[in-house]
Design a protein around this nucleic acid. Sequence first.
DNA 1: GCCGGATACCTAACGCTGTTAGAGAACAAC
DNA 2: GTTGTTCTCTAACAGCGTTAGGTATCCGGC
Lengths: 247, 247
Amino acid sequence: MAENGSRGGRRLSPETIARAALGLLNEGGLDGLTMRELAKRLDVRAATLYWHLRNKRELLDAMAALMFEEAVAGVEGPRRGEDWQEWAAALATRLRRTMLRYRDGARVFAGTSVGGPTTFRVIELILRTLQDAGYAPERAARLFPVLLHYTVGFTIEEQARQGLDYPEGESPYEPDRARDAVDPGRFPLVAGVLGELFDGDADAGFARGLRVVLAGLAAELPEAAELPELPEGARPDDASVRGRPAT
Amino acid sequence: MAENGSRGGRRLSPETIARAALGLLNEGGLDGLTMRELAKRLDVRAATLYWHLRNKRELLDAMAALMFEEAVAGVEGPRRGEDWQEWAAALATRLRRTMLRYRDGARVFAGTSVGGPTTFRVIELILRTLQDAGYAPERAARLFPVLLHYTVGFTIEEQARQGLDYPEGESPYEPDRARDAVDPGRFPLVAGVLGELFDGDADAGFARGLRVVLAGLAAELPEAAELPELPEGARPDDASVRGRPAT
DNA sequence: GCCGGATACCTAACGCTGTTAGAGAACAAC
DNA sequence: GTTGTTCTCTAACAGCGTTAGGTATCCGGC
């Protein structure tokens, strides 16, 4: 006696389930995402999910894949006249926006990226765009991940700051809490820039960091690194860019 | 009848517990870190831990704080003659190294940074160093986090790739798996740089990204941004650095 | 029409988790 | 030696991911 309102066949699939799981994420966050609750939302018992997915880890992977697909759906190469930096910034922003759409989205996404043909399509697109901008593909392949890492790192912290893991008003990220904790005598500079440090405008902060990373990438453009017209040492960051970081 | 081998008094403290928890992390990872197992390691029953810590979340916070302290212990300003970029790179590298010392260390650390006086001491140090390098403190405060975000983002992915969450030989990060998945007809550039994409040398990859970020920061140095000797448009990234990323 | 296998779902249960209540030992102060 | 505080214990709760095994449903072959 299947009380199941709908016809038997192909109702559930890893994708359907992952989609429902992303919905569930926005209530209760990652902690509230349990197989039983997810099953309830799909009008099914928890054990059923294991017919479609090996385990929860696989569910999380599917969710991450879905997020990625959502982020890059319809993305093509730069429009005519569009700078590669604008294009890359838009791509990173799309990814961030998608992660932000889901509570704990960045944590779900982090470290689960590679995989499907969608991934390779986008990487191909990136490599082609950077190649057109003058980067050798090998060079581009070693450089572009920094953009992804920054984006994920930033968004993870942003969502952590939203602090829904903490009970009401106890989040250690409240600006006031910091304002009390920093002694202006010992840490005058910190005290002077508390506003900047805890500024709530995450969008602007992200864009700023993006600009930094993209400027850094631009500085790695081979042509840029050996512009003949520039007198040696004219670029102020010349030595330090070449210098290897201390290990 | 306290079978407890050691004297009664101040044995346990949040710090002791967190330290043991970090040790436990290296066996079993984040999933293996359970209150019961942690208690066992401290010769105590699980409930006891709740006398010292409100809940597991607080334990994780304490662990993150401990990692941060371990990372920046003894850190001072740049040595005489040391470039601010070298100094910053060394700092980021220290943080990464510490996170790598513990399984899932980056995931534990991510989004739990701010808090203690140690944090503010280090931020003060960063601000002072950048100030000496020519950055206004407000500007520095808005810029330096990008370094942290990159470092955390990179290391999270690195540790995810180590793939100890997956059963033997099933990690989706195995290079061979990718080599099979990418069709050289559709994705020629990707196929050509698989070696670079899945290159195992994480240290070099991190250093490369660090160089990029630092170069980007250097490009944001006000003085650098308007070096009078440079003819307008000589720096190839001129326009694009100014351009705001698409939203 | 009916059968057999595959597919999709179920119930029931396992061992484990974080967490709490409340009893009781150990210690310090008087 | 009593009292109060600090710490640890036992016992239990509800909920977790996951598995074994049964059952309904669908579909192609006769």
